[in-house]
Write a protein that binds this DNA or RNA. Structure first.
Lengths: 201, 201
DNA sequence: GTCTATACGTCGATAGAC
DNA sequence: GTCTATCGACGTATAGAC
């Protein structure tokens, strides 16, 4: 796209107001989702809670799917502003902390499950992009942590970091699901078991 | 449930035809889901593929949710008619076989993910009942297998069978998801890793 | 650019005809 | 037992007010 004007065309006029409004909507939507689940989440219902019309949501987010993805992304971003993370923290410890936080915001976990399930179907590019990127990034991050821990002697050095990363993420997600369906399911016990299995003997 | 009449009241009139028709619909629906994913799955679309109207589906299954649950249940039942299972088969081996089969019927795995995600939300009794029962039953079955394997010396005897069962199920589900999103994800490697971790040293 | 009003087609569910 | 007809709610798209 040649011939770009030296004055970028976007932030002209009341553009700033738009991004602020968009942020307002996202913040409010996160509260709504965290409280009551991701059920009853039509554009009209969300719009009513936020205080706009459903057409306004379409204006800012394009589609319901993109809105849901943005809500979850933003909630992760805000949740990520937690105490600075020790990079040598064990991957399982990291997931256990995450699971603990998630128990307080069940609606966001429901939203996450919905997004992942949607991503598996064809014809949902926004959800697919979100899930693919998230899993690939998480696997990479966790694999790096595994290597650090292996060097520090806290994780068995004979195990493949990539496989460990995928396994820890899968266990974390799957146990979260089982726990949401049955709070007697041994979520933390199973994560501790995995931690023990990975530990250097 | 006392006082059952010797002549059960249900199969009166052309009831037998009804169950046959219902079975026909289920069989056809399973084919449809196995082929193309669980997307495009409105009652009207399914009805068209099956050759009836959407009102007929509602007559037999009550709601879309119940139809989806029944389709998956029936597909599991039919898939369960596979080679008799060695009860001492290791839990991870069992899940690896299952994963192998599932790769051929991606649409049914998509349907499963949708059902589980739906079950996490409020106000979906059929999906919730399905998922709760399935996980509880699977955990029980796998825990029993773990105990057998522990006695046979194939799984470390110092580990909690219930926690192992939950962990194996979670890993299996979660890795399936990651693999569907990215066929480079180390699904089998991670399951083999888990097998190795659980093995008696 | 921001946002409302409105309309379109499809959805799950249901009632009633046959 | 299966259909047609109809209902309210949905996601999306667009025209135009400001």
């Amino acid at each position: 796209m040649p011939d770009e004007s030296p004055n970028p065309p976007q932030p002209r006029g009341s553009y700033a107001k738009g991004v602020a409004r968009r942020q307002e909507i996202l913040d409010r939507a996160i509260e709504v989702f965290a409280q009551r689940g991701s059920d009853r989440t039509s554009m009209r219902a969300i719009a009513k809670e936020v205080g706009v019309t459903h057409a306004a949501l379409a204006h800012y987010f394009g589609s319901l799917e993109e809105l849901l993805v943005e809500v979850y992304r933003e909630s992760e971003r805000q949740g990520g502003a937690r105490p600075p993370v020790n990079p040598e923290e064990t991957p399982v410890e990291m997931m256990r902390r995450s699971a603990e936080v998630n128990r307080e915001v069940v609606g966001l976990v429901q939203l996450y499950s919905t997004l992942v399930a949607t991503a598996l179907e064809d014809g949902h590019p926004a959800a697919h992009e979100f899930a693919t990127t998230r899993f690939a990034g998480l696997r990479q991050d966790l694999a790096a942590r595994v290597r650090l821990n292996q060097q520090a002697g806290r994780i068995r050095a004979d195990l493949d970091p990539e496989a460990i990363a995928a396994l820890v993420i899968a266990a974390s997600d799957g146990l979260q699901t089982q726990w949401l369906l049955d709070s007697d399911a041994p979520q933390d016990a199973a994560l501790l078991l995995l931690e023990q299995l990975l530990s250097r003997p």
